[in-house]
Design a protein around this nucleic acid. Structure first.
Length: 473
RNA sequence: CGCGGGGUAGAGCAGCCUGGUAGCUCGUUUGGCUCAUAACCAAAAGGUCGUUGGUUCAAAUCCAACCCCCGCAACCA
């Protein structure tokens, strides 16, 4: 019985190059998507780009290119990036799409009962073209460090979304698990934040923000990020003019821990305002640290994901970030660890295993064997269903290691020496089946490798690959 | 007194909710094997479970106080 499964990833802001954090979103979602597909489910998998706002507008002006051209170029970079990661998304939405813009305006109209206009007064920097928090003003002594100009008090009109209309319902749905916030320890954090969340400003006057979705029926205002960006998850499905109930509510929405709050508070408020159900699961992953520190351009410890892919290929990249980086906690990346994982685990555990078992089969002239279809391990399935994919991957890997143990335990080369062909074939068949079972567990994580292994052992004649799966040195 | 997470073998983590001989992966040491990418398998060493006090027959686990680290604001998931 196949069911529809919709999953989403956060849409990155296209003012920079794709980095490792974006990759985590995609990899986790892709792994889950492949897992669902292997269960026979019908998966719809959204990805996209967030393309409005001042930063992008200014950047384009700096580069002296039309804004649309600038975002087109950058959106393409992200699309290429996704392809390079082997991610099988079914949809790609860009917030500058005409259809998206039109749908956002319709969504705004439908939310109008919960939107009100109010004036906002705060410290503003002419150079930065943005409001500065009270705290920041204090820290900088009232003068913008970037522009050497004093902040000004400024008042402007904004539209606000009345979060307070929905707080109780959101809290109830988070508490009850109707919208499951993962990992568990983030749940309290989010509930606390929710209590203190004021109504949120969702527009800017055009003189402060021009590159965005115009607020319907008010040419003086442009939508500020929230409705525009968050709505992508449903506009991509064709909301509001299409019936999206086949795929909405989403099975799971993948976000980084830094943007969980928006997805757990503002996004549900929008959905409730539209009379739509909330996503079943909000999945927030940890961040990747570099040598124990937060990656940052100013420190200069940013790890370029494409450089990592280049080192030992995509499989090694997926392997490292899906297994050694905890799904929910922050994890450290170092090149040493990465090298160790490649040589010590991919090459020695799995690559070598394929090599030795295929060689044993070849020497025994094993052919024409019907292998049984493997069943999913229960512990693995449980972890995958709980979205703890790094742990599920651990389980899968332990099954790989079990095959190495089993080969040492059964010693097929001894049986071959004794000349008992019947026993040898039986033993090898069982070993291959054990490997194929482990291989099936690996498939969502390392699809290419898994496919190669399957083709090696289900071929007419089993032969070791001419080039090892994971060459060393 | 802002909110939250954490401090368990050299490293990364589990165990804590529902107290009862301290566990996993990697690394280290030793032994075995030879089918295999000098790969694989087995065994061993290594911990006063942040500190102090309390509850208890019994505390990594429950309670209290304290110390330290990291997020919540910024180019950044």
């Amino acid at each position: 019985m196949s069911k529809n499964v919709y999953l989403t990833t956060a849409i990155p802001y296209v003012n920079g190059a794709p980095h490792i954090g974006h990759a985590m979103d995609y990899l986790l979602a892709d792994t889950y998507a492949r897992y669902q597909k292997s269960l026979g489910n019908n998966v719809r998998f959204q990805a996209g780009t967030d393309e409005h706002g001042n930063k992008i507008f200014k950047k384009a002006k700096e580069l002296n290119v039309p804004v649309q051209e600038y975002v087109d170029t950058n959106a393409r970079k992200f699309q290429d990036f996704i392809k390079k990661l082997g991610v099988e998304n079914t949809d790609f939405i860009r917030t500058s799409d005409k259809e998206h813009v039109r749908r956002c305006q319709e969504i705004w109209r439908r939310l109008s009962a919960h939107i009100y206009k109010n004036s906002y007064e705060g410290w503003y920097c002419e150079g930065c073209e943005r409001f500065i928090t009270e705290k920041e003003v204090e820290e900088n002594g009232g003068i913008c460090p970037d522009h050497q100009k004093p902040y000004e008090k400024l008042e402007e009109e904004n539209y606000y979304l009345r979060i307070s209309d929905f707080k109780a319902e959101i809290a109830q749905k988070i508490e009850s698990g109707e919208m499951l916030v993962l990992p568990d320890f983030r749940k309290n954090e989010v509930l606390k934040l929710l209590e203190d969340t004021p109504d949120v400003s969702i527009s800017r006057p055009t003189e402060h923000l021009s590159w965005g979705v115009p607020v319907p029926d008010d040419p003086s205002q442009v939508m500020y990020v929230w409705v525009d960006a968050l709505a992508n998850y449903i506009t991509v499905l064709g909301y509001p003019e299409q019936d999206i109930s086949d795929f909405w509510p989403a099975e799971v929405q993948f976000v980084g821990k830094d943007i969980l709050r928006f997805h757990a508070i503002i996004w549900p408020a929008i959905l409730l305002g539209l009379g739509l159900p909330l996503p079943k699961v909000l999945h927030s992953h940890g961040h990747i640290l570099a040598n124990g520190a937060k990656m940052s351009k100013s420190i200069g410890n940013v790890v370029d994901p494409l450089e990592v892919v280049e080192r030992h290929g995509l499989t090694a990249f997926r392997y490292y970030f899906l297994r050694h980086c905890d799904t929910f906690l922050d994890s450290d990346f170092t090149w040493d660890d990465f090298e160790r994982a490649y040589a010590g685990e991919l090459a020695n555990d799995l690559g070598n295993l394929v090599q030795r078992l295929a060689t044993l089969c070849k020497k025994a002239d094993l052919s024409g064997i019907k292998f049984e279809t493997p069943k999913l391990d229960a512990e693995y399935k449980k972890l995958m269903d709980e979205f703890y994919s790094s742990r599920a991957f651990d389980v899968a890997w332990s099954k790989v290691q079990d095959v190495n143990k089993a080969i040492d335990g059964t010693k097929p080369w001894m049986i071959a020496k004794e000349g008992d062909q019947e026993k040898l074939e039986k033993v090898l068949k069982e070993l291959v089946e054990q490997l194929l079972a482990a291989n099936a567990l690996i498939a969502p994580f390392l699809p290419d490798t898994s496919a190669k292994i399957l083709s090696i052992f289900t071929a007419e004649k089993i032969l070791p690959p001419e080039v090892p799966l994971f060459p060393k040195g």
